[in-house]
């Protein structure tokens, strides 16, 4: 309660430098904080209440990504020197509700499900899936097509439908663009 009180009396934090591609959707209620550059690609959707924190490193998000509400992108506390490169999210990545992503890289077409957690400096390959409540440790390297599920179980899924999945994410962003009012000027 006391922390809330303090926040209300403090002057508004300075906006982080941003680089927005055209035709992205960023909801009014999204929170962008920090001092490093946040760049977001074409057709990416940032849901309301998503939190992007660039205090400890830059954040780069590719095109056609979906960042859901309550997810936290960027380092949550100071990193050690070995992983200070920031967070890089490739194209077509879906970050679901409440996920915490501190990864150095999240590969193309990956899905991070509800309340999953990716530790600092971890590298997630292309077309991976991190199941609900699953955790990737700091510095871990996960190969392409890996699926993390249940209580730390892993398997490789080469169903060969990556292109279709990417297409589906594309369709989803198209629809979300109609549903979520965008206000990029607020953050620029």
């Amino acid at each position: 309660m006391s922390s809330l009180k303090r926040a209300s009396t403090a002057p508004p934090a300075p906006k982080p430098p941003v680089h927005f591609a055209p035709a992205l959707v960023i909801a009014d209620n999204a929170a962008l904080t920090g001092t490093n550059l946040i760049s977001i690609g074409l057709h990416t959707i940032i849901h309301p209440r998503a939190k992007l924190n660039s205090t400890y490193g830059p954040i780069t998000i590719g095109s056609n990504c979906i960042i859901s509400e309550r997810s936290q992108i960027g380092f949550q506390n100071p990193p050690s020197n070995s992983h200070s490169e920031g967070v890089f999210i490739e194209n077509g990545v879906v970050i679901e509700t409440g996920a915490i992503v501190e990864a150095r890289k999240v590969g193309e077409g990956s899905v991070v499900e509800v309340n999953a957690r990716i530790g600092k400096g971890a590298i997630l390959g292309k077309h991976c899936k991190v199941g609900a409540l699953c955790e990737v440790q700091a510095g871990e390297i996960i190969g392409d097509f890996t699926v993390l599920y249940a209580d730390g179980m892993r398997r490789v899924d080469r169903a060969g439908i990556e292109d279709l999945k990417l297409k589906m994410v594309g369709r989803q962003t198209e629809i979300l663009r109609k549903l979520i009012p965008s206000n990029p000027t607020k953050f620029q």
């Binding site: 509700t97 369709r171 989803q172 629809i175």
Partner: peptide, 16 residues
């Protein structure tokens, strides 16, 4: 807690 309508692809178009 959070309530969120689900979405899926059906007959080539995505909808919640």
């Amino acid at each position: 807690c959070e309530l969120r309508p689900p979405g899926k692809l059906y007959k080539g178009s995505f909808s919640h």
